[in-house]
Amino acid sequence: MLYVLLSAVFAIALTACRSGNEEDAADAEEQETNQEEKPQTDSSNAEFDALVSAMEEETEDTATLLFENNESQSHEMEGLTLTLDAYQLVELEDFHTNFSIPFEDQTDGGVILAQYTVKNDSDQDLHYMPTLDIDYVGATKYYSNYRDLIPLEEQLPTILSPDNEYLVEAGDEVTGYYAYPFGQKQLDDILAEGNVIVDVPAPTTEYNEYSSTIGSGTEFTLPLDDDSAEKSAETESQGFYQDRISAENMGDKEMIEQ
């Protein structure tokens, strides 16, 4: 009788253990699925999702999407056109200390990922050095691409570099990315400002000959929240040039003559 009772108790315990293990496995699978789905639900751009995943792996951190903008901006310079196709602002927290230097010696901060396309519609080869630096009100330096955050082959400064003399052949176009890092303090500053400015240089007809510059450069305004994006769109719809007065909300403008 005792043997039968012990056997029954053992069977019940074994069933409960198996049930618990199955539940744990199901929970782990659900968590893994949620992690896989997170970039897709956070972002509307699969190409950026892949770059963010690579950046998370590189920095040993998890990125949080703060803002994205898929409205393109273009500037034509006598046959060569630079287009800002889209960009995202993501936040990083407590990443590996190896990356503290580009983040102003901090281990928290954010990254602006921007996709650019350079297109040569002219009948001559042109050279375009993509020094697409970011500035903002109160900045103490210019912010540029940091090469160790995303795959090198995806970066515009790798695609257009001294190795190929920044060459964009006639009728050709290239697309690449920039990764701009900001420490936590700087991230707070640009979020408070609402916009950053990208400096757009002009191309040259000869490599490293600035006297051969054609066209003129400009600036792209990158809103970093919905309110700033709405303000920027309203200003553009009214026909105002996107200078710093407009981009940085320094005051109101009134159109006298267009």
Rank of each mutant, 00 (worst) to 15 (best):
Y128H: 05
V168I: 09
Q155T: 09
N120L: 11
F182P: 01
S161G: 13
E78C: 06
E78D: 15
N164D: 14
Q106T: 03
S100N: 15
T83Y: 05
T131W: 15
T117S: 10
Y180A: 00
Y177I: 04
F103V: 02
P102F: 06
L82Y: 01
I112K: 01
L132M: 15
T81K: 09
E76W: 06
Y143F: 09
I159Q: 12
P130Y: 06
I101H: 13
D123C: 11
A114K: 01
E104M: 04
A170F: 05
P157N: 12
D125Q: 08
I134V: 15
S122T: 08
E93L: 13
V118F: 03
I112W: 00
Y116P: 00
D85G: 07
M129G: 14
A179W: 00
Y180P: 01
K185Y: 06
N69K: 03
S74R: 09
T97Q: 14
H75V: 06
G183K: 04
E91M: 03
D108R: 00
Y87N: 02
V168E: 02
A86L: 08
A170S: 10
L149Q: 04
L82W: 00
N69V: 04
P130N: 09
H96G: 10
A139W: 02
L65W: 04
D125A: 12
S161I: 11
L132W: 06
S100F: 13
D135W: 15
Y180V: 01
V174A: 08
L132N: 06
T107F: 02
D172C: 08
L66M: 06
G138E: 10
L160P: 08
L84D: 00
P151S: 05
V137D: 15
D94C: 12
Y177M: 04
F95G: 13
L156E: 06
P181C: 04
Q155S: 11
V111A: 02
L80Q: 01
M77V: 00
D108N: 03
H75L: 06
I150A: 05
P157C: 13
R147M: 13
E169T: 13
F95K: 10
Q106K: 03
R147V: 11
Y142W: 14
L92K: 08
Q73G: 03
A86R: 13
P151A: 03
L92S: 07
L66K: 04
G138H: 05
E153M: 10
V118M: 05
